[in-house]
Design a protein around this nucleic acid. Sequence first.
DNA 1: ATATAAAACGTGTATATACACGCTTTTCAT
DNA 2: ATGAAAAGCGTGTATATACACGTTTTATAT
Lengths: 152, 152
Amino acid sequence: MTKTRQADGLVPSYRSPSKCVCSNVRRASRAITKFYDAAMDPSGLKITQFAMLRNISMSGALNASELAQILRLDRTTLVRNLKSLQEQWLIENAASEDSRTRPLTVTPKGKKTLESALPYWEEAQAAISSKLGLENLEQFVSLLMKVESLTD
Amino acid sequence: MTKTRQADGLVPSYRSPSKCVCSNVRRASRAITKFYDAAMDPSGLKITQFAMLRNISMSGALNASELAQILRLDRTTLVRNLKSLQEQWLIENAASEDSRTRPLTVTPKGKKTLESALPYWEEAQAAISSKLGLENLEQFVSLLMKVESLTD
DNA sequence: ATATAAAACGTGTATATACACGCTTTTCAT
DNA sequence: ATGAAAAGCGTGTATATACACGTTTTATAT
């Protein structure tokens, strides 16, 4: 008997993982986010910031509603997540004819940051790919998309 | 030409989804959380609260560190997430010989709430299962666990 | 021409997540 | 016996997420 407190029960950490699909996805999300954030750390960007910056850059200009649609994020969530990028002057607002919209563009500093971050992201991607194997990875992404389509 | 603003580009919502595995997992996590939360709504519990309550109940008593380990959540995150359960008097602190620890137990009200929530959770589980098919579901969960083991 | 609808935006509030830090209590080595 | 290490706990701060609500501006129907 080494542990008295749990002598007649299971040691919690040895418990079988939950069968709840949602909890499993959320756990995986926490883990993979941590992994990517650590990989991206030298760039000064979190993976969420990288994703926003990358999409704005690829599109040239996007307003918040459009970006939210692309990322499948609630618009109001996005508005707040953009704040950190704005405070660092990685993005800014462009002029617009329709004064309801505020098209976002990437600043020169933002472009530079994005480019410097790319290798770290690719490294993380490669690590996942090699961990799962290409076939598993494709299957995985395909299943994630099916899950995602639950709320359509 | 029906849309002038995006005439020379892609309509954002038609863009192919990101190849970033992390972003894909996070998107799926948002979607499935929304789905489960909606399913559980009649019970008054969110899926995260249900998970905490269920684990405490199954173990009889757990302190925060143990529960965090089971859920693979940062301990300090858990401490804060527990607050809502405590405020609703669904859980409470039990006595302990070691005064460092504060073992959590489920109150009678908590038990009742948990029981009433179970069918809604099962409904959500069944929906996912039928959406993916049993074989895909097993594969999916297995891949999620591989991803989760990234940060070990 | 104007009233109504639709589109875009931001804020208040609540929950979820993790890291850095510091406090208290027990354990352990000498 | 006592001082250091380890275990457990909570808070400050920052980020991520969504819903309800209200505002402003453009589009539309009559």
